[in-house]
Amino acid sequence: MELVINGELIHVPDHIRTIADLLVHFQLNQKIAIVEVNAHIVQKQEYETTALCNGDRVEIVHFVGGG
């Protein structure tokens, strides 16, 4: 499926169905991230159950500590 991730059209493999899958795909599942789908922030406990659809606009910001 194709998603617009952080403003860029990206083709993701077919096994990716939820936000949790997507975070694993980008190796962000161990990090704390804020995820927005179509301009709505998704709660962390809903990552497993929130299905993604072709064309969804996803914004992901993950926290880092360095400075």
């Binding site: 952080n6 403003g7 860029e8 804020i34 927005e36 922030i41 914004e59 992901i60 910001v61 993950h62």
Partner: peptide
Amino acid sequence: KLVSFDVWNNQHTAIRVDQV
């Protein structure tokens, strides 16, 4: 907004987080 970027991979994102 919460803003993040990657200057090497050319990404930029901003999310409105008020509802959190």
